[in-house]
Design a protein around this nucleic acid. Structure first.
Length: 116
DNA sequence: ATCCTGACGCGCC
DNA sequence: AGGCGCGCCAGGA
């Protein structure tokens, strides 16, 4: 047994590891599907770090990271650098029905990753 | 180490 | 239907 005694509170991993995980998760979201900030937080290993997820998204400007597929809870679009219209257009282009600032039938387009 | 800021979530008015 | 406030977490000054 590895009596490693890992401190539950302490983060043995790298400091910016959270951001890396978040980006990794977002990159796995397939086209036509969306995930809420809460979903990403949970998949990244921090169920209550939705806030931080948003901050990471804010700094993510990479083309390989489909940050437009990350929306707010309840199907609300959330932010997108102030260009909510662009986010809406991108989602619609992928087949996601968006009404106003709200994604319709969230349960249907919500990305459900398999338990790997 | 402390304080402040946020592409949030959720309840309540 | 909106808007407000509080709680949450990570990063930067």
């Amino acid at each position: 047994m590895r009596s490693v005694s890992r401190s539950s509170k302490a983060r043995p991993r790298g400091a910016a590891d959270f951001a890396v995980r978040v980006l990794f998760v977002v990159r796995r979201i397939p086209p036509g599907r969306v995930a809420t900030y809460g979903d990403v937080a949970r998949l990244a290993g921090r169920p209550r770090a939705w806030r931080a997820v948003g901050n990471v998204m804010r700094g993510c400007r990479r083309p390989d990271v489909p940050c437009h597929r990350v929306i707010a809870a309840g199907g609300r679009l959330g932010g997108y650098g102030g260009d909510e219209g662009l986010k809406r257009a991108l989602l619609r282009a992928e087949g996601v029905t968006v009404s106003g600032s709200r994604v319709r039938e969230l349960d249907r387009v919500r990305w459900k990753p398999r338990n790997h």
